[in-house]
Design a protein around this nucleic acid. Structure first.
Length: 478
RNA sequence: GGCGCAUUGGUGUAAUUGGUUAACACGCCGCCCUCUCAAGGCGGAAAGUACGGGUUCGAUCCCCGUAUGCGCUACCA
């Protein structure tokens, strides 16, 4: 199947998954699944100075946790490995030699200091800072001499002059850039590692990548890549550069203005389904007059098309994420939701050993929260000892309150079990028989049960406590 | 500075490949429900599509310019 879609997510392992990367991964994933193709994870670890311990493991874990499972890559195997660029050094060297032989690249021997100096001078003269291509004109003998005497070197791309590179981006349409403005980019660093530009082109080709879906920050380096494809005589994959995710002030989403890692959001109690759903809609929509906003992963896969990705950056609107997360919480399977909320309740000091009660608590609390980490605060009323202020004490010790409690107590005693439905009629009966109604009826009961003036409807509260506990609470105030 | 990309209410987006009272959602405001707080239901304010020119009988939609924002401009990705 030679025209199978193959896409890749190719992050550098920084130690956490940035939300922007999450969305790039998601778009790649949706695109692959939509077309029945392959989704590949490749680790771009060519910068030795930015190595982070455990970063790859973390990345793999979070992708799996988010349900963005890949078909090829670390831990998943595949016929196009290794999937770590740091393990493909000989490959890059080999192709680099090919470029050298074909006159598409050349050796350069400047030190970092020399290059800094060059840039400084250019800056002072108010000129554009870029490599002045000085090593292009080294003679064969000069090169040979420096090489044999062990001078450190890099290999640079020999950018053809006075040309215009044009390409078509699926999201942005036609783009053109003059080659004179393109740096003779370093392809192979002096430590023997490739730069992004070289590695990415070689790997994408060798791994049979058909579509490159990546962040907008790469758009301007596409011409360099095209030059490389051309030098190798390879076909250029289709490209789609997705817009950036922005802070509320429209700058690139950054740590400075709040959490940006997927892990942080999960920790705060955002459901992965909600996060995925929300991220998908940031810069993309199904179009066609579709007005739904809540989509399962399968629906997203079905609807997704890369052409419908927007070209402008999108502000990360956390208010809307909160709403969407709340929607998911309200509609989640109660057993699964209980499992998810458990750690947050425990962290809030709540004893969850009575799992049946915990489940009822979750059922009652879900309407009040938009994040899982808010659950404990709302659940407290179902576990705390009664503590009332003077005014509240006056309410529950009033004569009418006592009457209400006594009658309610006997009526509950006749029930086999309290449900959210059968408690309300009980109160109606109490109202009729005692003549106490409205706030005078409900508030004492509410206070007696929870010690709070606010909370869910009484039927729900009584259901959460269950018959025995409600009776016990009433005994305390009688 | 140079180059590239972008621009529909506060935010995310829509608008049968030019003809709509410019639609939906979040947020905000109000009302209803109600013992309370949420949820829910109903309604409202909020953009004349960055600005200026074209093309056209007619532009959110096509073209040009300006402004603004962002990105890139490393032996980082």
């Amino acid at each position: 199947m030679s025209n199978e879609v193959r896409v890749r997510f190719a992050p550098s392992p920084t130690g956490y998954l940035h939300l922007g990367s999450l969305r790039t991964a998601l778009f790649n994933y949706l695109f692959a699944r939509h077309h029945g193709g392959k989704f590949i994870l490749r680790i771009e670890d060519t910068d030795q100075s930015r190595k982070v311990e455990g970063a790859v493991e973390n990345l793999v874990n979070i992708l799996n946790e988010m349900g963005l499972n890949y078909d090829e890559g670390p831990g998943a195997g595949g016929k196009f490995g290794p999937y770590f660029q740091s393990e493909r050094l000989e490959i890059y060297k080999k192709y680099c030699d090919e470029l050298l032989a074909g006159g598409h690249a050349y050796y350069a021997f400047e030190t970092a200091e020399e290059l800094d100096e060059m840039r400084k001078v250019q800056q002072m003269q108010g000129r554009q800072t870029m490599y002045d291509r000085r090593a292009r004109n080294l003679s064969e003998n000069e090169v040979k001499e420096k090489l044999t005497s062990g001078n450190p070197y890099v290999i640079r791309l020999k950018v053809p002059l006075d040309e215009e590179i044009r390409f078509t981006d699926i999201i942005r349409g036609n783009v053109k850039i003059e080659t004179n403005l393109i740096d003779d980019q370093v392809l192979l660093k002096s430590d023997g590692y490739p730069t992004y530009h070289l590695a990415n082109v070689i790997d994408d080709h060798l791994m049979g990548i058909t579509h490159i879906i990546r962040g907008e920050e790469w758009l301007t380096s596409v011409p360099k890549h095209i030059l490389l494809y051309r030098a190798f005589g390879w076909e250029v994959p289709q490209m789609a550069h997705v817009p950036l995710i922005l802070n509320p002030d429209k700058t690139k989403l950054s740590k400075r203005q709040g959490d940006v890692s997927t892990e942080d959001f999960l920790k705060k109690g955002y459901l992965k389904e909600a996060l995925l759903n929300f991220m998908a809609l940031l810069g993309w929509n199904p179009g066609d007059g579709e007005e739904r906003e809540i989509f399962t992963k399968d629906e997203l896969i079905k609807l997704f098309s890369i052409e419908r990705v927007n070209s402008a950056g999108a502000v990360f609107n956390i208010e809307k994420l909160n709403w969407m997360n709340g929607e998911y919480i309200k509609n989640y399977d109660i057993d699964e939701l209980t499992g998810l909320i458990l750690p947050y309740l425990n962290a809030g000091g709540i004893d969850t050993s009575d799992i049946a009660k915990t489940k009822r608590v979750v059922y009652a609390v879900r309407n009040y929260i938009s994040r899982l980490d808010e659950a404990a605060e709302h659940a407290k009323i179902y576990y705390s000892k009664l503590s009332l202020n003077e005014e509240q004490k006056d309410i529950i010790t009033s004569e009418t309150s006592k009457k209400v409690f006594a009658l309610l107590y006997s009526k509950i005693g006749q029930l086999t079990e309290i449900t959210a439905e059968n408690f309300k009629p009980l109160l109606n009966e109490v109202q009729k028989e005692t003549g106490v109604k409205g706030k005078n009826l409900f508030m004492p009961v509410r206070l007696a049960l929870t010690g709070e003036e606010h909370g869910p409807e009484l039927g729900l509260i009584a259901y959460v406590f269950g018959k025995q506990e409600v009776l016990k609470k009433l005994e305390e105030v009688l």
